[in-house]
C-alpha cells in the first residue's frame, strides 16, 4: 500500500513544482534594499554594479538585459531569441549573454541559481531588476515601458 501513497505524493509534488515554476518564471523582481531583504538575500543592502568588462559586452544607453546561460539549458535559447528580437527594434537597449559556467565567481556574487537568469541593468551598470526562467514577451515589454518604452 505504501507504494500507492508514495506514487500519489510524487504526482502531487510534480503538480506543485509545475505550478510554482509557472508562477515564478520570467517574473521581474526589482532589486534594491527592500527587495533584497524581502527575498532573504542575506546582507542585501548593497546594489550590485556590473562593468562592461565583467559581462563582456557594452551597456545600453537606456537599459541592458544581461542573460546568464549554461549549456544544459533548453529555455536559454528561447530567451536569447526573444530578447534579441526585442532589442533589435529599440534604441539604447542592449542584450548581453554571459556563460554562467565560465563566470562562476560572478554567478555566486549575484546569487544566480538558475539559467536563464535575466538581469536588468541601467546605463551605470546597476542591477535594477532580475527574472529567472523563460520570460514572456509582455514581461519584457513591461520592463521596457518602465524606462519609457
Amino acid at each position: 500500500m505504501i507504494g500507492v501513497w508514495v506514487l500519489l505524493g510524487a504526482v502531487v509534488l510534480a503538480v506543485v513544482v509545475a505550478a510554482v515554476k509557472r508562477a515564478l518564471d520570467g517574473r521581474f523582481r526589482t532589486a534594491g534594499p527592500e527587495a533584497s531583504s524581502r527575498d532573504g538575500d542575506g546582507d542585501g543592502s548593497q546594489l550590485e554594479v556590473l562593468t562592461p568588462a565583467e559581462i563582456g559586452g557594452e551597456l545600453g544607453a537606456r537599459l541592458t538585459f544581461v542573460q546568464f546561460s549554461s549549456s544544459f539549458c533548453s529555455p536559454c535559447r528561447a530567451t536569447r531569441t526573444l530578447l534579441g528580437d526585442v532589442v533589435r527594434t529599440r534604441e539604447g537597449v542592449e542584450h548581453v549573454e554571459v556563460d554562467a559556467e565560465s563566470n562562476l565567481e560572478l554567478v555566486r556574487r549575484l546569487n544566480i541559481l538558475r539559467t536563464p537568469t535575466v538581469l536588468v541593468v541601467d546605463p551605470a551598470g546597476v542591477v535594477v531588476g532580475r527574472a529567472s526562467g523563460l520570460p514572456r514577451r509582455e514581461q519584457i515589454e513591461a520592463v521596457l515601458a518602465s524606462v519609457g518604452g
Binding site: 544544459f72 533548453s74 562562476l104 541559481l113 539559467t115
Partner: peptide, 22 residues
C-alpha cells in the same frame, strides 16, 4: 517527479540542477 514534470510541462529538472551542481 522529474520524469512527470518533463512529460507534462517539458520542464527539465536535471538541467536546472546543473548550474547549482557546478
Amino acid at each position: 517527479v522529474a520524469a512527470l514534470l518533463n512529460a507534462a510541462v517539458g520542464f527539465c529538472l536535471g538541467c536546472e540542477m546543473y548550474l547549482l551542481v557546478r
